[in-house]
């Protein structure tokens, strides 16, 4: 329930065509990676909310058999003690048991790495996967934890105060927000 009181300047950063192109790259990289690692039936899981949007596209592109899973990380965020409970909590949904499965974890933007840390914790409270691959649409600077993606759509270096936000579901567009 925090108010965004600062004036924010929105501008389109990557349009629908650029996002679609990045997703295509990711799909083909993932396919190759799975082949290399000998992963036949991966289980794809998107992180609420942007990660689910990206995962839906990749899931379709890879024509995966298992339904898509999604994770809500609100209960695992490390800023609960500072800002309280996140207002919109959706239940996590994992369609099949994850024990001994190869997981492809998908998110829209990787910056500090804290979301991924929380997502891994959620995942492990559901079971013990055989492996986890990380697919990220936008990998930017600002890492605070040792987390590296396996597959990346777009790499970016941004100024402090600049934020990337994915909006969708159709078309998917990346917007840059600059706090003034």
């Amino acid at each position: 329930m925090t108010n965004m009181t600062d004036a924010v300047n929105h501008s389109v950063w990557q349009d629908a065509a650029a996002v679609t192109a990045a997703l295509a790259t990711m799909a083909s990289d993932l396919k190759q990676l799975c082949a290399t690692r000998g992963i036949n039936t991966p289980l794809m899981v998107g992180i609420h909310t942007g990660g689910v949007l990206v995962a839906e596209r990749l899931h379709q592109a890879l024509a995966l058999a298992e339904p898509l899973g999604h994770l809500d990380i609100s209960f695992y965020r490390d800023d609960f003690t500072r800002i309280g409970l996140h207002p919109q909590v959706r239940p996590s949904y994992l369609p099949v048991p994850i024990d001994d499965r190869a997981i492809i974890l998908v998110d829209d933007v990787l910056q500090t790495g804290r979301t991924l840390r929380a997502a891994l914790n959620v995942l492990f409270d559901y079971g013990r996967p055989a492996s986890v691959l990380l697919a990220i649409l936008v990998e930017r600077d600002g890492r605070e934890l040792p987390i590296e993606p396996n597959v990346v759509g777009i790499r970016a270096r941004l100024a402090t105060g600049e934020q990337i936000k994915l909006t969708g579901a159709d078309p998917l567009v990346l917007t840059k927000l600059v706090a003034e």
């Binding site: 609100s74 209960f75 409970l85 909590v89 959706r90 239940p91 996590s92 492990f124 409270d125 559901y126």
Partner: peptide, 14 residues
């Protein structure tokens, strides 16, 4: 609404 989110915890292994 928030309680809906907590329902899912029962489905976790932990």
């Amino acid at each position: 609404d928030r309680a809906e989110g907590f329902l899912g915890i029962a489905r976790q292994a932990i």
